[in-house]
């Protein structure tokens, strides 16, 4: 089973990297870009088939290491 963790800056937290991306895109002529937020994706291969249990464990992994909840939000999606 595979868990995909999406981590992104919390709303309200300044995201200078996202701002730079948006700025660059605008300079390149992609005028429709209003804003960009830059985060990261972590893919986990897990040796467990119980989706409920996996979700709980990955939630813990996020809280304890993968995300810093002072500045980041995360979401988890599970794939078979």
């Amino acid at each position: 089973m595979k868990a995909i963790v999406h981590i992104r800056p919390r709303s309200g937290v300044l995201d200078p990297q996202g701002q730079a991306v948006a700025g660059a895109l605008k300079h390149m002529g992609f005028d429709e870009v209003l804003s960009a937020r830059q985060g990261k994706i972590i893919e986990l291969e897990l040796g467990d088939d119980d989706e409920q249990a996996v979700r709980q464990r990955v939630q813990k992994m996020c809280e304890h290491l993968l995300a810093n909840t002072v500045i980041e939000d995360f979401s988890i999606s599970i794939e078979p």
């Binding site: 937290v13 300044l14 200078p16 990297q17 810093n68 500045i71």
Partner: peptide, 17 residues
Amino acid sequence: LTETHLLPGALMRNAGL
């Protein structure tokens, strides 16, 4: 120290990147 929560807050990428 911020990651262990011995101190509050977080250190983010420099504004100038």
